[in-house]
Simulated scan of single mutants.
Amino acid sequence: MERGSPDAFAEQGTLGVEEEFFVVDEAGYPVSGSDELVYEGERPARLADRLDHELFKTVIETQTPKSESLAAARENVHAVREALVEYAAEHGFRVAAAGLHPAARWRELEHAEKDRYRAQLERIQYPQHRNTTAGLHVHVGVDDPDKAVWVSNRLRWHLPVMLALSANSPYWNGYDTGLASARAKIFEGLPNTGMPTAFADYEAYQRFENRMIDSGSINDRGELWHDVRPHSGHGTVEVRTPDAQADPAVVLAFVEYTEALVTDLSERYEDLAAPDGTDGCMRREVLDENKWRALRYGHAASFVEREGTGTVDLGEVVDRECDRLGVSGIRDVYDADSGATRQRRVLESEGLDALCRELLV
């Protein structure tokens, strides 16, 4: 069983991006293609060891190489995407992205045959059988395990902000859920997901991780699927909150924001003489409320503030964060319509065929 190590946390500020995509036909409808692309095809060099399937044979994941800077991360995101689109086309497929595919019907889709996923289906049953989700994961290297836990604790308030901005999955199983990100709610049906609790230090987190493995609750540390986690294999803080996106500019806005948050928090950690892992952290229940607001309302969400009893609109948070951190991408994302809004508009005005084309990468 795979376990992590504190020794993994050795580099500060490196970046890695994992994106989940739907394999679709020429018209943009989901099809089974991961076996052919992952196992049977001859991958281009850019995708060597950078391509994997997920639970359903219509979902595929890419991983960028480790990047030493934001500029390198941008290049790698574009390069990996371009390679995937070209490779898929060579095999008669196209690629689409959203938190959930509006044309996907989970009962009609094939599951991957990998032992890991078969074991999950047997253990989790219905919640995993219906898990047709696709997300965006951003890794930022942190050079100390206790710092990684401290940063993860304090990132939690920002996760609903990212979810609201990324909300791109109003439809599930052919139904308008009324949510901006139904993916977030579907995924929360699995065990060990959602907003994590705060941990005092890395030792406390490692005890939790090992206890979950030793008790048979999970098969390996990778099955702790919380919205943020200290990744004890890669030595990163991994943010797993956003919906998948067709537009690389939106992806890179979240990479920029996540990198800025981790850098800012890491610098503040260094300034503290004896940082307390959980001191000043909000209750998980309040953070869950903020997540609910994000997945329900998307760009129209407001959030319970970290201090006091008031709320703050997403737009105000975006302005504040851009000014504080010197980022701009999330403002562009906020100023545009959300993915959920665009999907509803296209479906209502042009129909499902047009919406499937809209999600093509």
Results as ranks from 00 to 15, higher is better:
residue 119 A to Y: 06
residue 9 F to I: 08
residue 139 H to N: 02
residue 48 A to C: 06
residue 315 G to R: 04
residue 251 V to R: 03
residue 164 A to C: 06
residue 302 S to D: 15
residue 136 L to K: 00
residue 359 L to D: 02
residue 228 V to S: 00
residue 150 W to Q: 00
residue 285 E to C: 09
residue 222 G to R: 13
residue 188 E to L: 11
residue 95 V to N: 00
residue 127 P to H: 07
residue 341 T to M: 11
residue 72 A to G: 12
residue 206 Q to R: 13
residue 326 G to F: 12
residue 63 Q to D: 13
residue 113 E to Q: 14
residue 98 A to H: 03
residue 205 Y to L: 05
residue 17 V to A: 02
residue 23 V to Y: 00
residue 63 Q to W: 12
residue 347 L to V: 11
residue 116 R to A: 10
residue 41 G to D: 10
residue 276 D to W: 07
residue 102 P to W: 03
residue 99 G to I: 04
residue 323 D to S: 11
residue 28 G to Y: 03
residue 56 F to T: 05
residue 325 L to M: 08
residue 250 V to H: 03
residue 80 V to I: 15
residue 114 K to P: 06
residue 280 G to Y: 10
residue 332 D to S: 14
residue 260 A to Q: 04
residue 98 A to P: 01
residue 67 S to F: 05
residue 185 K to E: 12
residue 275 P to D: 09
residue 201 D to Q: 07
residue 101 H to Y: 05
residue 265 L to I: 05
residue 104 A to W: 10
residue 225 W to S: 02
residue 161 V to N: 03
residue 120 Q to K: 12
residue 220 D to V: 09
residue 173 N to T: 04
residue 16 G to W: 01
residue 26 E to R: 14
residue 336 A to M: 02
residue 306 R to D: 15
residue 319 D to N: 11
residue 337 D to R: 13
residue 305 E to L: 13
residue 109 L to T: 06
residue 191 P to Q: 02
residue 31 V to K: 02
residue 71 A to L: 09
residue 305 E to Q: 15
residue 200 A to S: 15
residue 177 T to F: 04
residue 180 A to R: 01
residue 206 Q to M: 12
residue 231 H to Y: 12
residue 307 E to S: 14
residue 70 L to A: 04
residue 204 A to Q: 10
residue 252 L to F: 02
residue 100 L to D: 02
residue 223 E to D: 07
residue 266 S to Q: 01
residue 243 D to E: 10
residue 190 L to I: 09
residue 75 E to W: 05
residue 63 Q to T: 15
residue 88 A to L: 08
residue 271 D to Q: 15
residue 129 H to M: 14
residue 57 K to N: 12
residue 277 G to C: 06
residue 39 Y to V: 11
residue 51 L to D: 07
residue 178 G to Y: 02
residue 50 R to H: 10
residue 37 L to D: 08
residue 51 L to I: 05
residue 56 F to K: 06
residue 218 I to G: 02
residue 280 G to K: 08
residue 24 V to Y: 00
residue 257 Y to I: 01
residue 25 D to F: 02
residue 80 V to H: 04
residue 185 K to L: 14
residue 47 L to H: 04
residue 194 G to T: 09
residue 272 L to G: 05
residue 307 E to R: 15
residue 33 G to I: 11
residue 17 V to K: 03
residue 326 G to R: 06
residue 106 W to H: 10
residue 315 G to Q: 05
residue 348 E to V: 07
residue 132 T to F: 10
residue 188 E to Q: 14
residue 190 L to E: 00
residue 55 L to G: 03
residue 194 G to Y: 08
residue 179 L to H: 10
residue 342 R to N: 13
residue 338 S to L: 08
residue 79 A to C: 03
residue 147 K to L: 09
residue 203 E to P: 00
residue 267 E to H: 12
residue 74 R to K: 13
residue 127 P to T: 03
residue 79 A to D: 12
residue 255 V to A: 01
residue 354 A to S: 13
residue 293 R to Q: 15
residue 71 A to R: 09
residue 109 L to N: 11
residue 305 E to M: 14
residue 279 D to H: 15
residue 11 E to Y: 10
residue 336 A to S: 08
residue 281 C to W: 08
residue 308 G to I: 09
residue 176 D to C: 11
residue 151 V to H: 03
residue 133 T to C: 12
residue 245 Q to N: 10
residue 169 S to H: 03
residue 119 A to I: 11
residue 313 D to A: 15
residue 335 D to A: 11
residue 91 H to R: 14
residue 260 A to W: 04
residue 251 V to K: 05
residue 76 N to A: 15
residue 261 L to K: 05
residue 167 A to C: 07
residue 32 S to I: 05
residue 217 S to W: 08
residue 294 A to C: 04
residue 117 Y to E: 01
